[in-house]
């Protein structure tokens, strides 16, 4: 009995993470899934231990959540949308920087049913579109619409819970939904259970080209232990490459760490995400490098999407200086 209570106490008296030797906390921007696999791959394949780093992963609830927790010192590294980070930094001095790009194209997309009359983004005029309330996609929607000579008021926009989006479209309540391309596999599966198929209209194909999800780090950690941050970036670099070139193993790795994640589904998610990670941009600039020009383009979109003036932030301050040179070497 006594022992039981002692265990019970130990159970919740966890010590809050602190910068012990090379123990770091990594903050996801959402729940575990295929597109979050690199950090798990890094652990399973030993990329972190090769750099003498021990990683603990925390789940998150959106980019803002992730950035806030890294800024507050609750985590050292994380995934977050660099656009969200830039918008945050333009408004207050958030001590967080990006250290490695992850998605070099926007992950946002419209999903429609295959039998829908909507085949191009411009066909959406006057249609009902559902989006989730807190997705970063919402900020970029006006920009995408503008590229097709539309405004937000040309659509009937409905905000709903993420879980409700698919069912709303499948039951015919809305004509299209806004979701990330990373979830194509999941939405396809859901549609299949209702005997339907889907078509996806990625925003990146219509010209919304920008840095999106990135690896972020605490600026304080970068100042106090730049070497650790660089080693971490290097391990992540290797992990991302591994994950996207050996998707099946990556699926198994994440399943190993998070049993709830199905290895096959994770693999499908990784494959669906591939074009966001390795694409024409990485062909041109090289993988794992922030370029000042593309960063400037990103900021231009982000500033416009968030109603910020372009001079409210020096875009380059959102990225650790070493990350411009490339992290791998």
């Amino acid at each position: 009995m006594k022992k039981g209570w002692a265990l019970f106490l130990v159970g919740w008296l966890w010590i809050t993470p602190s910068v012990a030797k090379d123990n770091v906390v990594f903050q996801l921007d959402w729940l575990p899934g295929g597109d979050k696999s690199p950090v798990y791959v890094g652990i399973e394949q030993g990329f972190f231990s090769a750099q003498n780093i021990e990683v603990k992963v925390l789940t998150g609830r959106g980019s803002t959540d992730s950035i806030t927790r890294v800024a507050a010192g609750r985590a050292h590294f994380g995934f977050a949308d660099i656009g969200t980070l830039m918008a945050a930094k333009a408004q207050s001095p958030v001590p967080v920087v990006a250290i490695h790009p992850y998605f070099t194209e926007a992950p946002h997309a419209f999903y429609v049913l295959s039998d829908s009359p909507v085949t191009r983004i411009s066909d959406l005029k006057g249609k009902k579109v559902a989006t989730s309330a807190f997705t970063s996609s919402n900020a970029f929607l006006p920009l995408v619409l503008a590229q097709h000579q539309m405004q937000e008021k040309d659509l009937t926009l409905i905000k709903a819970n993420v879980g409700a989006l698919g069912p709303m479209m499948l039951s015919g309540n809305v004509d299209a939904i806004i979701a990330w391309v990373t979830n194509l596999g999941l939405y396809k599966q859901q549609a299949m259970s209702a005997g339907k198929t889907l078509r996806i209209l990625p925003w990146s194909e219509s010209g919304l080209s920008l840095y999106s999800s990135s690896v972020i780090a605490s600026e304080r950690l970068l100042a106090s232990n730049p070497d650790l941050v660089k080693r971490f970036a290097k391990a992540m670099h290797q992990a991302i490459e591994f994950a996207y070139h050996q998707a099946e193993q990556a699926g198994k790795d994440i399943h190993q760490q998070v049993p709830e994640v199905d290895a096959v589904i994770a693999k499908e998610q990784i494959e669906a995400t591939y074009p966001l990670v390795f694409n024409a941009i990485t062909e041109r600039d090289g993988f794992g490098v922030f370029t000042k020009a593309y960063l400037a383009t990103t900021w231009k979109y982000v500033a416009k999407a968030n109603n910020l003036t372009e001079d409210s932030l020096d875009a380059e301050s959102a990225v650790a200086s070493f990350a411009f040179a490339g992290a791998a070497e």
């Binding site: 899934g33 789940t59 709830e260």
Partner: peptide, 19 residues
Amino acid sequence: FVAAEEGLGYFIQFSTSFF
């Protein structure tokens, strides 16, 4: 729902996110 790596609430949210 706000922060967890385990628990029944987390499990429900996780399951929903995977449809």
